[in-house]
Each structure stands twice: as C-alpha cells, then as structure tokens.
C-alpha cells in the first residue's frame, strides 16, 4: 500500500497546480510509529509531506461537513462511503469534491501490535510486503500484516472506494465474509446475559467522547450529550448515563454508519463500541435491505418508508 504515496502526491500536486481544488486532505507521517495524522494542504510545496501506509485508519470524511471550498480528498473504501452519506445529508456537494480513491487492504490495529509486544511501544515500524516489522531494542518482531488488522477491516466488504475521480492503484479484490457472527452470538444470549455483557463492555468508558469526535456522522451543532434543557444524558459517570450515551449514539448513527471503525480506533480505553452500531447495521440490512453510503441516490432508511414495512410487534 505504500506505493500509493507517490500517486497521492502526484494527484495533489496536479490538482493544486491546476487550481482544480483549494485544499487537499490526506495524511502525513505521524511523530510516533504506527500513527499517521490527517493533513490538510493548500500549496504545492507541501505535497511531499503527504503519505500513505496502513496506519491511515482515521476517517477523513470527518473534515468535510459544511466546507465552502473545493476539496481534494484522499479516500479509502469506508471514507468514500461516508462521503456519500455526507452528500445525501447535504453536508457537502459532489461538485466541490475531487476524490482520490485508495483501494484498501485494511488498516493496522495499533493495540494488537502493542499486545503482541507485551505492551511496549515500538521505536521503529516498517511495512514490508504483506508483513509488518516493529522494533525496539531487544524485540524485533515481524508478523503477517493480516494478523494485526483492525476488527472492522477483517470483515470489510467495501475495500474499494464507491465513488472517486481517480484511483491511486488497481482495485483490490473484495472479501466474501459473514459480517455478523459476533452480533448473532450476542443475540443468542438471554436478556440478562446481554445486559451484563454490555455492562462489562462499557464499564471502562471515560465519557471522553473521542468515539463521537472521530465519527464523520457526528456533526450536529449541539450533540445530545451536551444539551442541558432538556438534559437527555446525565453528565456523570453513573452506569445509566454511560449506557444512555452509548445507546443513543448507536441509534443516532443508525442507517448511516459505514463501520469504518474510527470510533473504536479513537477510544483511549479500547471499548468495542461497534458492538452497538453493528446491530443497527444488521437489522437495517435485514429489514430494509439498505447499506449505508453505497448508493448515492437512495434516501437513508430512517428518512423513508415502504407501505409494507415489517411490523412484528405492533398491536
């Protein structure tokens, strides 16, 4: 995937030089290994800082809502789906965008690498063909890159961008996977077990809202968690407040979430918040046959209806 860097720079240079866009949003190398940072450039002399490898898991669509200018944006499969969602929700116009599509083979989960290294951060990391190597003094570790993939990337079925103006490489093969094994596992538990399961899952939550901030869908001027009158969610760390937050967050992204994994990636305590959103995703697919951000001219599932929609429990 590192070969993409050259193509991204080339595209950015051309776009800026020809004045096709005002800014280009991409990544640059972070200051520590395994962390790249979003980078917004406005002039041609900055293009050589643009960078791409398997640590670009942040969702760049997050930087688009309500931008007035013309934007070139680097987008992997999930980013492109969130761009489609933004267009549907009138957060940005297609004409404003020049999408530099990146066929993706999955992003690395820094936590998995850390765990494999007994919690010690590497001082150096490099990507080889199909492998990742991390080094710090005594421990020089090389492993298959698939071993370290983010959870959502393992089950991703849209690795290729769904919309783009140009591609930085050949399209990759899409995976044929069952996306919902974990959801079904939870569904099979008893109500009490399920309550306990989620109680444990969210117990370490700090309510820092990093998961919300990383999510491209969370662009409301005032988030429900910040509303005070009426106050829907208490500000405390009480379990019920945390539960309410996670519950409503999941509901709020229903039919919009692309399972990009940015939320999970951002969580400082490693909570698998996608366990909530994936249930919504599964239900929406089963009940309404809808997948978020894939088709550009279909209304989102909660913004439409069919006369014969299922109503299993309505009296």
């Amino acid at each position: 995937m590192r070969a993409y860097t050259g193509r991204i720079r080339e595209a950015a240079k051309r776009l800026l030089a020809e004045n096709r866009v005002d800014v280009v949003i991409g990544f640059r190398k972070g200051t520590i290994p395994l962390m790249n940072e979003p980078y917004l450039i406005k002039s041609v002399d900055q293009v050589n800082q643009l960078y791409w490898d398997s640590n670009c898991g942040i969702n760049l669509a997050n930087y688009l809502p309500k931008r007035p200018d013309r934007v070139g944006i680097v987008a992997k499969g999930c980013d492109s789906r969130n761009i489609v969602v933004h267009i549907l929700e009138n957060q940005i116009k297609r004409e404003q965008l020049y999408i530099i599509g990146v066929p993706c083979k999955g992003m690395l989960d820094r936590r998995r690498i850390m765990a494999e290294r007994n919690g010690r951060e590497p001082l150096f990391a490099e990507e080889l063909e199909h492998k990742v190597r991390t080094v710090r003094y005594e421990l020089d570790l090389t492993r298959d890159r698939n071993y370290f993939l983010q959870d959502n990337c393992r089950i991703c079925t849209h690795r290729n961008p769904v919309i783009y103006d140009e591609l930085v490489g050949d399209l990759v093969e899409e995976q044929q996977v069952d996306r919902y094994t974990d959801v079904r596992k939870i569904e099979a538990m008893s109500a009490e077990e399920r309550w306990e399961h989620f109680e444990k899952l969210i117990e370490p939550c700090l309510r820092c809202y990093a998961c919300r901030n990383a999510c491209p869908l969370c662009y409301c001027p005032t988030c429900f968690v910040d509303e005070a009158r009426p106050q829907w969610v208490g500000k405390s760390l009480d379990k019920t407040d945390t539960r309410t937050f996670h519950f409503l967050r999941a509901f709020h992204v229903a039919g919009r979430c692309t399972d990009c994994g940015a939320c999970e990636r951002a969580c400082p305590v490693g909570i698998q918040v996608r366990q909530f959103t994936k249930k919504m995703e599964k239900d929406i697919k089963e009940l309404y046959g809808y997948e978020a951000g894939v088709i550009a001219d279909e209304r989102p599932p909660l913004d439409t209806y069919r006369p014969g929609d299922p109503e299993p429990f309505f009296k």
Partner: peptide, 24 residues
C-alpha cells in the same frame, strides 16, 4: 406518513433495547 417513519424508528429502537438486554 408520520406513523410510517415512526414504524421504522420504533422497530429499530425496540430491537436495540432487546439486544442490549432490556426486557422486550
């Protein structure tokens, strides 16, 4: 059509409440 939007909303809501462990 208000109730038809509501139908989708509540179906999903009830499913999520069940899923997270509240008695249906």
């Amino acid at each position: 059509e208000g109730n038809l939007y509501a139908r989708r909303k509540f179906t999903l809501l009830k499913n999520l409440l069940d899923y997270t462990g509240m008695e249906p």
